[in-house]
Design a protein around this nucleic acid. Structure first.
Lengths: 134, 134
DNA sequence: ACAATAATGATAATTGTTACTATTATTATA
DNA sequence: TATAATAATAGTAACAATTATCATTATTGT
C-alpha cells in the first residue's frame, strides 16, 4: 500500500487495545505500550489512536468527563457508564442498524458509525447504597 | 429551597439555551448571554452549564471533537453529526426506553440518561460530493 | 437591617490533545 | 544490497477547553 508504512509502535498500540476488555484512555495505553517500547512518545500514541479510530480499526468513546476512552472491540455495542464509580460496561445489543435506518429515513443522511452511551448506577454501586440505608 | 440561590446569570443561560435549536458550545452561550449581562464571566457559564446538566435541566453532548455542546431540549432524542460540515441535527425518536430496559435487564444497572450520537454525511454534504464527481 | 452563605468575576492553573521539527525507520526501486 | 523517497517517530512546545481559587457581591431566611 502507498502513503502508509508499518510501525511497531502502531502494532503494539493495536495489540494492547485489542487484548483488554477495559476501555482505556490514551494515557493508560501509553503506559502499557511503554513496557515493550520504553521510549515511545505519548504523541505517537495519540497520533495512532486518532488514525486508527478514523480508519475504523478501533473505536473512540467520548464520555464528556475526563479524556476519551478507546475500545479495540469494534462490533456494534453500547456502553454503560456508572456515574458513581466510573466503570464502563459493554452492552451487547446491536442497535446500529435500527438507528442507522431510522436516521437515514428521517433526515436523509448516510450514517457510518454510532455511539450509544447509557449513564446511571451500576449494580454494585446500587447495592452499596441500599446497604447503607439499612 | 436550601443550598441554592437564584441568580440572573443562571436564568439567562437557561433562557439562551432553551430558545435556540442549535446545539451551542459554552463559548457561544457566553457570547450570547453577554449581550444582556456584559460582564458575566466564562467560568460562570461553565459552572452553571455543568450544574444544570447534572440536574438534568439541560443536556450535554460530547462529540469527541472540540468542546462539548449543550441542548436545552431534554426530550429523549438522538443527534446526528455530519463528519464533513460538523452540523448537528436532531432525530426525534425515543430510543431511551428500549435502551434503558435492555441495559437494565442485561447488566442490572439503573439507567438515568442516555446519549445516542450518529456520525456520517448529511444530505447536503452528500449532494455536494455527488455533484463534484459528475 | 442583619447574618449566613451561595454565586459571582477575574484570573491562575490544570488537563487532554495537537502541532512542530529534526531524526529515524520503512519501503520501493535500481 | 545500496540508494532515494518519504512515512513515522521522539521530544517538546503550544494550544484549547475546562476547572479551581479567592476576594467580593447578591440572595435569602430571620
Amino acid at each position: 500500500m502507498q502513503n502508509s508504512k508499518y510501525s511497531c509502535q502502531r502494532e503494539n498500540i493495536i495489540k494492547v487495545l485489542k487484548s483488554t476488555k477495559s476501555h482505556p484512555t490514551a494515557d493508560w495505553i501509553y503506559d502499557k505500550v511503554r513496557e515493550e517500547i520504553p521510549n515511545i512518545s505519548l504523541g505517537t500514541v495519540y497520533r495512532n489512536l486518532s488514525r486508527l479510530s478514523s480508519e475504523g480499526e478501533v473505536q473512540k468513546i467520548s464520555l464528556g468527563v475526563g479524556g476519551d476512552h478507546f475500545d479495540g472491540d469494534i462490533s456494534s455495542h453500547a456502553h454503560f457508564v456508572c456515574n458513581k464509580c466510573g466503570k464502563i460496561a459493554d452492552i451487547y445489543t446491536d442497535y446500529s442498524n435500527l438507528l442507522k435506518t431510522d436516521a437515514e429515513a428521517k433526515i436523509g443522511a448516510s450514517v457510518n458509525s454510532c455511539s450509544v452511551i447509557l449513564y446511571g448506577l451500576c449494580s454494585e454501586c446500587g447495592r452499596k447504597i441500599s446497604n447503607k440505608s439499612k
